[in-house]
């Protein structure tokens, strides 16, 4: 009974959202662990540079203590992961039938990868992360606008790439040709917006070493990669039927 099998394997919106929330928690825990173990040691090095600048001056009373900021960084990473995972879940429900892949695990992983590219990789290439001790307060609003608009543009490119692949499939092109069309659309699109968007305004102060900047950028991208990888894999796993027999139900429908 292929029809019933198909109904069984189409998840409901509510089910996807619940699993998305859980995927967000898992992604937040993963990102927090990377933040604590990998990013925080680099932030400490940057704070040493900052302190050296004000050496001799009376120390300012910090509004939030260091331990609280480390904790806050992990809370922020978790909250961001849950927010992004809910958005990912809604978008997944909307575009599931447009995504290539035979399983929800494959589709969710692909969508999370596209999310990583749009929300993390493209901004990291144009406006790479900087540790504390770098950054001019006067330009932060302009930099924020550039950063957010670049993410919006990258998300639009991802949507276009998915659409191009789907149109090629609908016109009868073989799967590898259609996928290549989508990938090329993405690469050209990302390349164009990286060229068009204004150059970053951040200047690196001379007392901050290139090694520190590099270490921080790699650590930051690592935290974001952990977040998106765990988000996509968890959403996909939670949408996967537990047994191979149930998972195969959709394959039966496909071949029918």
């Amino acid at each position: 009974m292929p029809l019933i099998a198909a109904e069984m394997t189409t998840p409901t919106l509510g089910g996807i959202l619940q699993r998305g929330a859980l995927a967000g928690v898992a992604a937040g825990v993963a990102a927090s662990l990377v933040a604590f173990a990998v990013v925080e040691p680099v932030i400490e090095r940057a704070l040493t540079v900052e302190e050296a600048r004000t050496a001799g001056e009376p120390a300012e009373e910090a509004l939030v203590g260091r331990a609280m900021q480390v904790f806050g960084g992990m809370v922020a990473a978790t909250a961001v992961a849950i927010c992004l995972a809910l958005v990912l879940a809604v978008v997944f429900a909307k575009v599931r039938h447009r995504l290539p892949g035979r399983t929800d695990f494959g589709r969710a992983s692909l969508l999370a990868f596209l999310g990583f590219v749009a929300f993390a990789l493209v901004p990291a290439l144009k406006y790479p992360a900087n540790p504390p001790a770098v950054g001019d307060p006067d330009t932060v609003n302009a930099r924020t606008a550039q950063y957010l608009s670049l993410i919006a543009a990258a998300a639009a490119i991802a949507w276009l790439a998915v659409l191009v692949r789907q149109v090629l499939v609908a016109r009868g092109f073989a799967a590898p040709v259609a996928v290549t069309g989508g990938v090329l659309t993405g690469l050209v699109g990302y390349g164009l917006i990286l060229l068009i968007w204004p150059a970053g305004t951040g200047e690196i102060p001379s007392d901050v070493s290139p090694q520190l900047i590099w270490d921080f950028r790699v650590a930051s991208l690592g935290e974001l990669a952990a977040m998106w990888a765990v988000m996509g894999a968890t959403l996909g796993l939670l949408l996967t039927p537990r047994t191979a027999k149930a998972a195969g139900a959709e394959t039966v429908t496909v071949s029918a």
């Binding site: 922020a76 001019d136 930099r143 924020t144 950063y147 930051s220």
Partner: peptide
Amino acid sequence: YLHEFTHDGRHALGVPCH
């Protein structure tokens, strides 16, 4: 307060900050 509390997180996630 929100800014200071999430300060490490913002830098770590690659978001522009002062």
